[in-house]
Each structure stands twice: as structure tokens, then as C-alpha cells.
Amino acid sequence: MKWWPFSSSGGDAQPKSSDGGIIAPTRTDRQACYNSRDIFFKCLDRNDILDSEDNPAQTVKACAEEHKIFEKDCASAWVKYFKQKRVVDWKKEEALRKYQMESSRMPPDIQQTSS
């Protein structure tokens, strides 16, 4: 399994610095990862998949190529993070939408509960 296939050093291991640290992705690396992520998420949107971790079979069927590139361009921890973040963000938006809907029809609601 490749950890940082996009970095210049390549290979299987994470690139190490001379003082024993592990070199972080650069700005360019990050941007490449974000781009691949966005392409993958757009594919999920098109196929109505929210949680790709929950629906691996569907994801592979619909967005196999995009998924492969996403995993190639991002570290595995990032792939997992972004997939989960997609779900969390959607839930947040949904909650906000619900809240706004409810607050817009607040007066009749209050009347109902009080009667």
C-alpha cells in the first residue's frame, strides 16, 4: 500500500526527513488532493451517494476511477477524514435547513403545542 505516492521520493515508506521526522505534504500536494477529492465527491453527488464508506459496492460501481485517483492523491488518513467530513457537513447543512424551516413556521407550532 502506498502512503505518499505523489511525493517526489516515492516508494512504499513515508518520506523521512534527515532528523527522523516524516515530511508533510506540500501546498502543491494538498491542492492535488483537494482537486481529486472534489472530482470524486461530484461523482458521488451525481449518483446520489452520501456516505461512500457505507456503500462501498455502489461507490466502486459508480465512481471507481475517481475513487482510485482520490486515494492515490491523498494520504489514507485524509481520504477517511474527507469521506467522514462529507457526511458531517451534509448533516450540519440538513440540520440548519430543518431549523430554518421550523423557525419560519414557528407561530403555528407554538399554537399547536399550547392548545
Partner: peptide, 15 residues
């Protein structure tokens, strides 16, 4: 602390 050595941090922040 495991991954971020002074050199890694320096390289990272330079950007």
C-alpha cells in the same frame, strides 16, 4: 511529536 521534527516543521512553515 512523532512525525514533526524541527526540519519537517521548518519545511512546512516556509510555505
Amino acid at each position: 511529536p512523532w512525525r514533526d521534527s524541527p526540519e519537517v516543521v521548518k519545511k512546512y512553515l516556509a510555505e
